[in-house]
Write a protein that binds this DNA or RNA. Structure first.
Length: 575
RNA sequence: GGGCCUGUAGCUCAACGGUUAGAGCAGAGCGCUCAUAACGCUUUGGUUGCAGGUUCGAAUCCUGCCAGGCCUACCA
């Protein structure tokens, strides 16, 4: 066996203020899980981390709306999201929280190191304060009439009507978007800025070294690096209550009392802190998580892959690397960054605020996770935005899962039961037809592996489907139901191959459809999940005489009635 | 306003300057009867958004236009 690889995988961490929709899921967590399951299946050592992103204004507002203290709200929503993630079979090694004590300490540590390196400067600026809300208002939370076009719901940063960039003080009749209060005033407040501009060349060179990254990824990074005056320094603190208190390591930061770090400073650091949460939760020593993240403590041979939606790219290509590089400490930087476009819903966008589309909890209410996993992954928005329609979903799932794979399992197990009983039949031997099949499967398996390694999600799904189809083609041409009448021994060998194909499929398909895969393994009474690199050997794994049971219908079809029902139910507003 | 991305068969997508633009689904025909009215084989669909240009050769490169999307640094 080849040397085991070590692969660190993180998915963009979902924001805490509600249940995510399918577009969010397919943009990061789901493909990350596919990759994690595949790499584990290949026998590699995987650390797959995700968490909830809990700080920032929207979390506070969502908590207020729910009538709960923000800490309590976040704790509850974290549990809700964790439960749903489990429902989708997302196989995180740990699902952490950006509000964890571990992340508090680590975020403060990074800030301290950056300050020591002279990469943080203090800036006094003017911001709008709402007396009624008792808080500073980010520009987007101030509404008023656009001085340019007269649009009445222009935001403090930009008018959506005429797209003109605005300063909050430009607005006529400014009011708080939170309470509607017009009792606003401009106050001075001091904030910390991360001197990203000082690291521009270093970041630029680092991005240039990533020739194999998708255009989508590098072009966004390049834009930020070179547009206008180049990479700008970024504010990393906010005047909020909920968040990580501004400290220099363990020491207070004079003049910054009562302020917290900006959510986008602490959120990516949670990728690292999450590993410590994992170690702490499992009673492991620090060395156990540090060997994933510290290149001076064993992480030099780790391959680190990040998954995210395209909106997250600038933070992962610039801000977070700036934090890591600027610290001067040997933390692991990302090796490969896989970004996704958006999934649209039935001619428009999924919308959290309008409740348009299917949300993760609702999806699980109507169908098992595997249906969603298969459709979403086989239609992942890799090269451009992609489109969910109920018709397409119904057709793809029925055809691929029920007809091609599910029915294959059904026809071979039921035929065997009726002619040979519920055990792998004895007698006969594989011949030319079987050799040809093994050859085809071998070349398809190699293609599947390559696509999976390259994180080509759609192509992987296509190849896997072709592997399923090959089983039906074989049965059609071998026709054991005819052969049985003349030569039962030969038919026995054919059926034996068919049953072994089921196990082969279960192992290969597990990254996409883990629940169905587990059901198949159970029906086959097998726990041999070793990756079938040698196809010929894999197709003899279940020996003659091995008992099995005919599984229940693996995938029930989606009926037209169901489809119409769901189409109507999810078109409007979420209740 | 600026930047980037996308536009290919009825639908969802491939094709990365090089045969006759491919695949799955849908449609049509044939076969099979083990199976979830399932499976297999064959087959009909394309002026590659529009108009120019470069090239021996363009879906691919360039220019302009049209349509959609994303980002634009205080949403996260």
């Amino acid at each position: 066996m080849d040397g085991m690889e070590r692969i660190l995988i993180t998915s963009a961490i979902p924001y805490i203020n509600g249940i995510k929709h399918l577009g969010n899921l397919v943009g990061s967590q789901l493909p990350a899980d596919l990759y994690a399951r595949y790499q584990r299946g290949r026998g590699n050592e995987v650390m797959f981390l995700c968490a909830t992103d809990e700080h920032g204004t929207p979390a506070e507002l969502a908590a207020a709306k729910a009538g709960k203290p923000v800490a309590e709200y976040c704790a509850e929503m974290h549990d809700v999201q964790a439960e749903i993630a489990k429902g989708f079979c997302l196989s995180f090694d740990h699902f952490g929280r950006s509000s964890s004590p571990q992340n508090h300490a680590l975020t403060q540590h990074f800030a301290g190191k950056l300050a020591e390196a002279g990469l943080i400067r203090e800036v006094v600026e003017k911001q709008v304060y709402s007396n009624a809300d008792g808080r500073f208002l980010p520009d987007r939370y101030i509404e008023g009439t656009c001085p340019n076009c007269g649009f009445e719901k222009a935001r403090g940063d930009q008018c959506e009507e005429c797209t003109k960039q605005l300063d909050p003080t430009d607005l006529i009749n400014p009011r708080s978007a939170i309470s509607g209060s017009t009792d606003l005033e401009v106050r001075e407040t001091k904030h910390l800025y991360l001197c990203q501009s000082a690291m521009k060349d270093q970041l630029d060179a680092w991005i240039d070294s990533k020739a194999d990254w998708p255009v989508l990824t590098t072009s966004i990074a390049k834009k930020w690096l070179h547009d206008g005056d180049g990479l700008q320094d970024r504010g990393i603190t906010r005047d909020l209550v909920w968040g990580i208190p501004v400290k220099k390591g363990e020491d207070d930061w004079p003049g910054m009392e009562g302020k917290v770090f900006y959510v986008w400073f602490d959120a990516p650091i949670e990728y690292i802190a999450c590993a410590k949460e994992w170690a702490d939760a499992n009673g492991k020593a620090d060395a156990e998580w540090e060997r994933w993240w510290r290149t001076d403590k064993g992480a030099e041979d780790v391959k680190y892959v990040q998954f995210m939606g395209k909106d997250n790219v600038p933070f992962h290509t610039l801000s977070f690397p700036a934090t890591i590089l600027g610290s001067g400490e040997p933390w692991k930087l990302v090796d490969h960054l896989k970004s996704f476009n958006y999934l649209n819903y039935d001619g428009g966008q999924f919308s959290t605020s309008q409740g348009r589309g299917v949300f993760m909890d609702q999806a699980l209410e109507i169908l098992p996770a595997d249906y969603w996993r298969w459709w979403l992954l086989s239609h992942a928005p890799e090269s451009s935005d992609s489109e969910f329609t109920w018709e397409n979903f119904q057709q793809s799932v029925n055809k691929d899962l029920a007809d091609v794979l599910g029915n294959f399992v059904s026809r071979i197990t039921k035929f065997c039961r009726s002619k040979f009983g519920e055990e792998v039949p004895t007698g006969g031997a594989y011949g030319e037809q079987e050799t040809a099949l093994i050859q085809e499967l071998t070349s398809r398996l190699r293609a599947y592996e390559q696509h999976m390694e390259a994180m080509e999600v759609r192509k992987s799904a296509q190849e896997l489907r072709a592997i399923w189809v090959a089983g039906n083609e074989y049965l059609q041409s071998a026709a054991p139901w005819s052969v049985f009448k003349e030569d039962p021994e030969r038919a026995a060998a054919q059926v034996r191959l068919g049953l072994n194909l089921i196990r082969f499929y279960a192992v290969l398909s597990a990254p996409f459809i883990p629940e169905a895969s587990a059901k198949l393994m159970e029906a086959l009474n097998s726990s041999d999940t070793e990756w079938p690199s040698d196809v010929a050997a894999a197709l003899s794994a279940l020996p003659a005489g091995h008992g099995f049971t005919v599984p229940e219908v693996l995938f029930a079809k989606i009926t037209d009635e169901q489809r119409e029902d769901w189409q109507a139910r999810f078109s409007g507003t979420r209740d």
